[in-house]
Design a protein around this nucleic acid. Structure first.
Lengths: 202, 202
DNA sequence: GACAAAAATCGACACAGTGTCGATAGCGTA
DNA sequence: TACGCTATCGACACTGTGTCGATTTTTGTC
């Protein structure tokens, strides 16, 4: 519920412990399903007792949220397509390739996050915000192309953006442990599909 | 883990209790989030003690799976588009309208199922099977249209089918408590999107 | 280097939810 | 009536989460 921790604001030696918890969490959530990781695992993975864990994080999902923040930050980088004009198929492909690679690299954490979203409002809100921001930018790009006459107007721009997110995420979820060839295939399919959806003709 | 219950196979007076549990579950899962419903709630909702619950169902998710079986059965009904030849936009629309209406009517249960899938392998498998069967039929229809030259061959049929499921489910998930107008809007968008994806031109 | 305040640690405890076991009560029928 | 099957439930054990307060360690300052 409340986000309040008792930690002071300045840097300290105990920050090492916080980092250790995050490191342990990254390792554990990458390997095992979310529910199977207990707070005790996280604590002893960082070399502290379970109760000491609560000094650093209020809940298990708070740790996951922290990890997700960094992943989300990385994802927000390669948004090259959004700034282009028109279909710009090559840029769309590049953007999808970057995000697909990043997704595969963090597959375990992202899968845990998907699980935890079911129970944690905090995480649900966080991911929702990230996604909304992404969809917003995609919708803006589409709106520009609708005005330019290249994109379809049969479907509202924000709905098209949501659809893109839906097919992208669904395909990416299968990406854990995928080969480079499989990853490329996914990117190809998505590029084609998004392109048809927005710029194709009925 | 094991599906074994101690119940005998034939009909009996205690079946009333099983029905009562299912009824209570339908009511509770329709109103409240999945985790907030305890086995005790289910049991006392059916007028029995918590331990007696275990005589009828091994776990909470088993009850949800039972409810989902009936919903899945209903959904499998209106698959009119799959048997058509070519784009058949009106049949696609009809099929989407049926499933959207059904989805909205069972929004609570479906949302609980989505939550529970995160933890229950049983439910995950069940829903996975239903979805796979659906996608399979969609892929067959698309394959026929690819052979007939109306559907695109730029993306494998089974991938197109998966994409359809992805955008459909994503949109339907927003359908809880939607007005008839909103529902129709969703169906319109989806009809258009699916049509473009499969039969449109690049 | 001593010392007070703040940071950090942890054991003991309370709690909620799940699941098991065995004792018992009802019920149908040979 | 007596046997076996259905059904019920209280008592118990277990796991994971979260809180409290007492204690130790660190840190900055004089």
């Amino acid at each position: 519920m409340s986000q309040v921790t008792r930690r002071r604001t300045g840097p300290s030696k105990g920050d090492l412990r916080e980092a250790a918890i995050l490191e342990a969490a990254r390792a554990l959530f990458s390997e095992r399903p979310y529910e199977s990781v207990t707070i005790d695992d996280l604590a002893s993975g960082a070399g502290i007792s379970r109760t000491s864990f609560y000094f650093y994080f209020p809940t298990k999902t708070a740790v996951l949220t922290a990890l997700m923040t960094s992943v989300g930050h990385d994802l927000a980088a390669g948004h090259v397509w959004f700034d282009a004009d028109g279909p710009a198929r090559d840029l769309l492909r590049t953007q999808l390739e970057t995000s697909a690679t990043l997704w595969r690299a963090n597959a375990g954490i992202l899968s845990c996050a998907a699980t935890a979203m079911a129970t944690s409002e905090e995480l649900r809100d966080f991911v929702g915000r990230v996604r909304r921001r992404y969809d917003e930018r995609a919708a803006e790009k589409i709106r520009r192309d609708q005005a330019g006459g290249t994109a379809t107007t049969a479907i509202p721009a924000h709905r098209l953006a949501e659809m893109i997110s839906a097919i992208r995420d669904a395909r990416y979820e299968q990406l854990a442990g995928a080969t480079d060839a499989e990853l490329r295939e996914a990117v190809d399919d998505l590029t084609e599909a998004i392109h048809r959806l927005i710029y194709g003709r009925a």
